[in-house]
Amino acid sequence: MSVADGIDPPLGEETAPARAPFRWSRVLPWGLTALIALFCVVPFLLVIAISFGRKIEGAAWVWDFTFENYQRFFVGTLWPDEVTFLYLQQLGYSFWYAVIASILAVITALPFTLALTRLSRRAQAAWLVFILSSLSLSEVFIVMGWDILLSNNSGLPALFKSTGLTDWLKAVGWFDTLREWGLANPRNVKFKTSEFATILTMSYLVWPYSVILLYPALSRLDPSLSEAARTMGAGNLTVLRTVTLPSVRLPLFGTTLLLFVFLLGTYVAITVFADPSKHTTAVAIYSNVRGANLNAPFGATQAVILLVSASVCLVLGHTLNRWSEAR
């Protein structure tokens, strides 16, 4: 080290390693953590804590640690003498509507998105503006639109009647089938209230979401793959079946899961289009926390159960999307 001995020592302020971090970089992460914990975590913890609370008749509720609410949800208050599955049935309807609507949305959005990714960049941007505008449109407006379209004295039923379609249906005999399905009264077709209208609206609600979620995966599809298949003699449908669909299988499933979670919380569409006997957990949460029942702990319990169902699906969907991106 004889050479180094003759060298000036570095200046004091310059001894920091290359790329010195911000001074506030030590404080910032912890401040952020506190903020995020307070606003993103505490509300959920409160819901969980209150779900173990107890309602006082004629008053509000008190902190407690009881499983009564959970018992009530799964088997009813009077268990084991009497068992009711009313709340489980509501959860069942939540799942039923959400599953059918999300699958429907993904199946119909897939060809659309596929066609979209083959357009020019400018055309894609224009379509995306349209899709995003429709995506951001509030559930209340969408339900409003479909309500007008499906209600008994205007929209489609009126159109059916005035164009003679109703009479034609009666003549062919399909009208009776519609009545069996609950989509007609003795005089005309009716869509309110029906599962058909509920699922249609819910599916419409998430359709733009499914386009947006499928878009990245589909736009990354390598066109040379299907071109290669074509040079080996595969027709359009064969290419779709053997190349395109298998390579988007995972994002397809992941998207369906995310939409399903989103639809678990649907409220307005259910209250307007579904029969009260077929209402969902989301509606029950609303009426318990802020509506007629005023039983916050039980509302919180139902929210926890919805949250758990949603989280399981989210984690699953996230993992699938990861997988598909890694490949």
Partner: peptide, 18 residues
């Protein structure tokens, strides 16, 4: 990202309590 990912009614209830 959690609040945006779960059904809004759950986060709404939580924030109501909060």
């Amino acid at each position: 990202s959690l609040p945006f990912a779960v059904p809004p009614i759950v986060f709404g209830v939580g924030l109501g309590f909060f």
